[in-house]
Design a protein around this nucleic acid. Sequence first.
DNA 1: TGCACTGTCAATCGATCGTTTTAAATTTTG
DNA 2: CAAAATTTAAAACGATCGATTGACAGTGCA
Lengths: 224, 224
Amino acid sequence: MPGDRTLRERDDTSTRLLDAAERIFATRGIEAASVRAITDAAGANVAAVRYHFGSKQDLVKALVERRVEEMAECRRPLFDAAMRRDTVTSRDIAEAWVRPLAAMALDGRGTRRAYLSFIVVIQGASPELRAMTSAAFQPQHKQFAPLLERALPDIPEAVRWFRFALAAESTVRALANLDRARAPWTAHGGIDDADVVEHLVDAMAGLLDSPCSTPPANRAPSAR
Amino acid sequence: MPGDRTLRERDDTSTRLLDAAERIFATRGIEAASVRAITDAAGANVAAVRYHFGSKQDLVKALVERRVEEMAECRRPLFDAAMRRDTVTSRDIAEAWVRPLAAMALDGRGTRRAYLSFIVVIQGASPELRAMTSAAFQPQHKQFAPLLERALPDIPEAVRWFRFALAAESTVRALANLDRARAPWTAHGGIDDADVVEHLVDAMAGLLDSPCSTPPANRAPSAR
DNA sequence: TGCACTGTCAATCGATCGTTTTAAATTTTG
DNA sequence: CAAAATTTAAAACGATCGATTGACAGTGCA
């Protein structure tokens, strides 16, 4: 069955552009990667970007959205299982967050390995692209709120969310470094990629579980 | 005493260039910030960058090194006090790492507040600038190794260092966001800047202290 | 006063960027 | 097959970039 889009990856110019862009953006950064470098790698003409996507920025948007739903579906069973538990632990949350990211970072199909690095470099790009990316992943973030409330009832809500956001971004960056040229800043010496995932789960769980040293009532407790 | 360089900040063209560059690099990123935007903000000519520093990249290097020693001196008393303790805790390590960074991020003098953001945007720049920055801060990283060994004797060394590098980079980024336009990704809703520092210490301590789920002997224990 | 040095300036270099136009080639469709 | 729609290709546009030049003004010293 030729043209089957579910099992076999397509080989359109459009798809080749997306794959080349995902890889080159991830390694060089958004601004440093010229559209000519991308079209050359894809074996296409410079004008192909305008024809298929509109502009360089629209190409970035298409790249972000290409895999958002894929990751949401990967996370859903983990997340639902955690929601169904009687007692939710920080480790449950950490696994539901990290595992789907790790699946993407360690995937061998196509250019999926580069996706997290691509998402990370967007955070260093224009505010408009940052906002677009955050909006695309916001649903997957927000759904963790009830889990956090059940796992960390003694932590103030603002601190809960601060910790989750901190750990969430940190794990994304750490997993992105598996594909990217490792930042010397976070050079994990001699740890297998698979073990990095386990250590990230440990780290995120420990970060969330840490006792809160500041008094919970910094603002006057409203009545009661 | 005119020209006193220890108490009063200078107002050279060179200094004005450094200050303007620190602020503009931090907000726009290294590549997106043109030397013309910097020289305009500094009230100088485009050629001033070449004359005083050599090139745009040399300007970045000069900016990094301007405050490295300043932060090392700020950290030294905290670090030495931790070294002199009989028992070292993860919280001691977290404070010795975070406090000097927070002092820089919350400083009101000059453009110091922008320095951490500037360091962060370098991590998204060229590999050469990244390597240069990492080398500049490497001494301050490496000195934590003996503290980590004493505080976390049951954690494998590679995991210890992985966790420290992860927490160290994460706290830098979080504190940089206090100056920068907050990334929506890590929007800390309604937490004072001073409280963010305390929450970061808690988070880093918890991250370091987390139990290690992977067996310590992944590689065969050599003899003994 | 004459000279060397430091610092600043306007002007411009070559290169590269994202984008656009126009037309040819290809595929689809009637 | 022929017309229509889709896709690709070459060429160039205007803009901006970092880097560089050479002239000009201020300074301190002989």
